[in-house]
Design a protein around this nucleic acid. Sequence first.
DNA 1: TCGGTTTCCGAACAATGTGTTCAGCAATGA
DNA 2: TCATTGCTGAACACATTGTTCGGAAACCGA
Lengths: 187, 187
Amino acid sequence: MALDRRVRRTRFAIHRALMDLMLEKGYEAVTVTEIIDRADIGRSTFYAHYTDKRDVLYASLDELAGFLRAHRDDGEGLFGFSLAMFEHAHEQRLLIRALLGRRGGTVVRDRIAYVIGELVREQLVAHNPAPAIPLDLLVAGVVGAYMALLARWADGDEPHTPAQLDAAFRQLVTPGVAAALGPGRPG
Amino acid sequence: MALDRRVRRTRFAIHRALMDLMLEKGYEAVTVTEIIDRADIGRSTFYAHYTDKRDVLYASLDELAGFLRAHRDDGEGLFGFSLAMFEHAHEQRLLIRALLGRRGGTVVRDRIAYVIGELVREQLVAHNPAPAIPLDLLVAGVVGAYMALLARWADGDEPHTPAQLDAAFRQLVTPGVAAALGPGRPG
DNA sequence: TCGGTTTCCGAACAATGTGTTCAGCAATGA
DNA sequence: TCATTGCTGAACACATTGTTCGGAAACCGA
């Protein structure tokens, strides 16, 4: 049995309101009161569904997580999600800027980094469960570089294409990762 | 002529209060009211010196910037600041955790990333003003990886040593950077 | 269509935080 | 000493958060 229609409507309205507002002012600057007004729901209703602004964000980012998982094994070799994500970011530039730009927030970045980190870790472990660089550091470094490229692109004026970004990411990170994973060539 | 003694005392008290409070709850959670109370100064006094919590932070981070500059050319090759910074972070682990951990904030991370980014950019340009990867992306990626390692270490339980962190950073990033900078071997 | 269940409303509330103002007192440095 | 500068502290308007609760409304299944 699906959710009560009212619940579906309410949650969607909230989700939609958060997205819209983020596009306008970035995640950090959005307030619960604004979400309520925009979604045109009662205050108590909001808190009946979510505890926080953060809570809404997490729910909304589940979509992104699904997207990334779907593209996990794109292309050849590691980091299949990379190009797809850059392309997605390119289409949704405003949204990505709202999420990752200066007006984003630690919460957003950390969450996205976490989601991507899971993917990266899975792939790295599959190739070598005990790499030369401690796994947690390796994952952190790779994801850190990726997120930084994404953020820089979202915030800056440079019109890099998704392919350029993907290439930059791979050129920067792949040699070090390959070395850390050892001789066995990842396919 | 130096600053009025009262000014010096007030600013130092504010600086000190922010540091203490960050150690206890992380930058984000600290409030201006708390700083005022801890520093034992009047509210209007605070706003006479700083506009913001952020403003105080920036002033405080100038120290860090000086430190990093002083170690810019440590060791051989690029990223001389790296080991010194990790060592500094090791001694001041609590402070670094307060700054970069989950309870830190975008403001803090961005500012530190900016400071480090300046250093990295200077060094990269010195070796090759037009690397294979667009300079801004290269810098972003390198700094992103570095910050991520620092943050992961500050937040996690793993007792990595500064030397290990420095090694991990270099192993991950150096090959890609060298390739991007081209054949001329950086000294 | 009925009827019990679930959700929504909305207004009020206490708590907390921000940034400003101003008149009077106190410390400073020359 | 004394003019200058900085500090005080309380009050203020304002914004935001998260909770509460009785009554109205919508929903879903029979």
